[in-house]
């Protein structure tokens, strides 16, 4: 069933590349460039996914699972990840699809990201994780759409039907997406189409991933650590590892077709140093927080997971801190 990961990843990679989807830019643009184009994509994608995921769960195709809440891990990891993505020149997914486009800075950032995530989850820094995991909070589920023991969600906290919270959530996000002025931009697929495609892909990804034994939706971090352990430790490729490979191959394919593939190298060598530091911070942050901008922000928030909502807020704050320091004068 690992090959389904490759297929889902390839489709995801094509959407990311064509839609120019970068969560780092989405966060930063709102603050520095007063541009909400990608933030609107994120809001709409999250709104639509919260419906499609819940529909699939309601019909018993998938069981939603929220990551455990861990205040220290989510806040510290989220903030560090947020700082890292600005330095790395892209979030975990942005860097991953740019690997396929031939962006050499992304290669280094991705490698540093994967290695540090691996070191944090199972390597030299794993003592930190072992200590942190003592503070994981999980609760008994209040609805059949969730697995029996899950991280707390807005539905479990208020002890109401997930549909009620989801509908309120969706109305708020749709108001933001369609009720406010949108920055103009010319792209190959616009933000609305990209969000709809992701909302269709996400529950299918969850279902395919669960069939291989990993009960979660789209992600990046676990995929990179898996690919590295396949390479250095001869471990089997798992679903999420195949998905990340798929993203790279899908993005590479569509970039070549669109004549957008090129080996891109910056003139200032110090850029490599900057993305290296960014990759390290992202890897440490993502492993600490339990996920990156895809695992937590794009996939976790639609499940109403408190852990993902808290982490995403700190992704945003970390991003804004670093973006302000580097580019604040350009406002």
């Amino acid at each position: 069933m690992v090959w389904t990961g490759l297929l889902v990843g390839a489709i995801f990679g094509i959407i990311l590349q064509r839609g120019r989807i970068c969560i780092n830019s989405a966060f930063r643009d709102v603050l520095i460039f007063k541009d909400n184009y990608l933030m609107k994509f994120a809001a709409l994608a999250i709104a639509l996914q919260s419906i499609t995921l819940l529909l699939f769960a309601q019909f018993g195709v998938i069981k939603l699972s929220a990551m455990p809440l861990n205040w220290i891990a989510n806040i510290v990891g989220g903030y560090i990840f947020g700082i890292g993505m600005v330095l790395a020149g892209g979030c975990a997914s942005g860097v991953t699809y740019r690997v396929g486009e031939g962006m050499t800075t992304a290669w280094l950032a991705a490698l540093a990201f994967g290695l540090t995530a691996q070191a944090t989850s199972g390597g030299v820094l794993s003592g930190w994780m072992k200590w942190l995991n003592k503070y994981n909070i999980t609760v008994a589920s209040n609805s059949s759409v969730y697995v029996s023991k899950t991280g707390p969600t807005l539905a479990t906290i208020f002890n109401v039907n997930p549909w009620i919270i989801t509908l309120i959530f969706v109305v708020l996000l749709l108001w933001y997406a369609f009720g406010t002025k949108t920055s103009q931009r010319e792209t190959k697929i616009n933000w609305i189409v990209a969000a709809v495609l992701i909302a269709i892909l996400q529950p299918i990804a969850w279902w395919a991933s669960a069939a291989s034994g990993r009960n979660y939706g789209l992600g990046i971090t676990g995929g990179w650590t898996n690919i590295l352990s396949v390479y250095t430790g001869n471990k089997p490729l798992n679903w999420i590892g195949a998905e990340v490979l798929g993203i790279i191959l899908g993005a590479m394919f569509i970039a070549i077709v669109g004549k957008e593939f090129k080996l891109r190298m910056p003139k200032k060598p110090s850029t490599y140093l900057q993305v290296l530091v960014g990759g390290v911070l992202m890897g440490f942050g993502a492993a600490t927080a339990g996920g990156c901008n895809i695992g937590h922000f794009l996939t976790g928030v639609p499940t109403l997971a408190i852990s993902s909502i808290v982490t995403s807020i700190f992704f945003l704050l970390g991003n804004w801190t670093m973006a302000w320091l580097l580019f604040g004068r350009e406002r």
Partner: peptide, 17 residues
Amino acid sequence: IDVRGEVCPVPDVETKR
């Protein structure tokens, strides 16, 4: 200005500068 190969959002920022 030549901003080929620079990481996002350096080209935007350099243009504005």
